[in-house]
């Protein structure tokens, strides 16, 4: 098997004043994989993604991303660009006033010029079929539009890996289908967190579940939920 893009080894994490959320957790993401992670509420699924991009610091264990051990804030700058995290609540992620500014935020931060950025914004919006939203004000978008724009904003940074935190949350069936179509068509490896068994079944190439602080092979309890 080829080398893993992201490897977590023996990760432990506890929020202040609570029992350990993650314990001795190992995870490898390989190129071309769409890895789905499920697990009960509060099991630490979001925490897991936040540790991968260095927003949270694990109490034990190591994070290795793109062939390098990552320690400390500086080391993670590069990881955050190459592994695009899509947050659970689009309102947290769409902090710019207009759609085009939000999409431009990432490319401008990694040092693209204004004209390059403008071209990237056009290209990404075109690719997702969202051109009509370009000048729109982010807080006036519908839930589905917000979700697709957050994905576009992350894709504008040309990440090699996508980390998606419950992307199908609160979407209607039509938008969910569109999201599935988009995600399956993308070449990026991804880790998806989802409670929606049908959604997972359509996307996953591998499924794991987070139980008692570590990852186990997914064992479906419902006959609809194919692993």
């Amino acid at each position: 098997m080829s080398e893993a893009l992201i490897s977590l080894r023996n990760i432990g994490f506890a929020y202040l004043g609570r029992t350990a959320t993650l314990q001795a957790l190992d995870l490898d993401l390989f190129p071309g994989e769409r890895l789905c992670v499920s697990g009960p509420n509060g099991a630490g699924k979001s925490t897991l993604l936040h540790i991968m991009v260095g927003l949270l610091k694990p109490t034990t264990g190591t994070v290795e991303a793109f062939g390098q051990k990552r320690l400390g804030e500086k080391n993670f700058h590069d990881v955050r660009r190459r592994a695009g995290l899509v947050f659970q609540d689009p309102d947290d992620q769409l902090f710019c006033p207009t759609v085009q500014e939000d999409i431009a935020f990432g490319p401008l931060n990694i040092g693209k010029s204004k004209s390059e950025t403008a071209a990237i914004v056009e290209q990404v919006l075109e690719h997702f079929g969202l051109m009509h939203l370009k000048e729109r004000i982010t807080h006036k978008l519908s839930g589905g539009e917000k979700r697709l724009v957050t994905l576009a904003a992350v894709m504008a940074m040309e990440p090699e890996v996508l980390l998606l935190d419950e992307p199908s949350n609160g979407l209607d069936e039509e938008t969910t289908d569109r999201l599935v179509e988009i995600l399956v068509s993308l070449p990026q490896s991804m880790i998806l967190i989802s409670h929606d068994a049908h959604f997972r079944a359509k996307i996953a190439t591998r499924s794991l579940s987070l139980v008692d602080g570590h990852l186990e092979d997914f064992d479906p309890k419902c006959r609809h939920a194919k692993p």
Binding site: V53, L55, R80, Q93, F95, A104, F105, L108, N109
Partner: peptide
């Protein structure tokens, strides 16, 4: 929320200086 927004900004390469389009 402000903490989550800051995290989202960091994930897209924010390091203190706001870029303008």
């Amino acid at each position: 929320r402000s903490e989550r927004v800051l995290n989202a900004m960091k994930c897209r390469g924010f390091s203190g200086k706001w870029p303008h389009l």
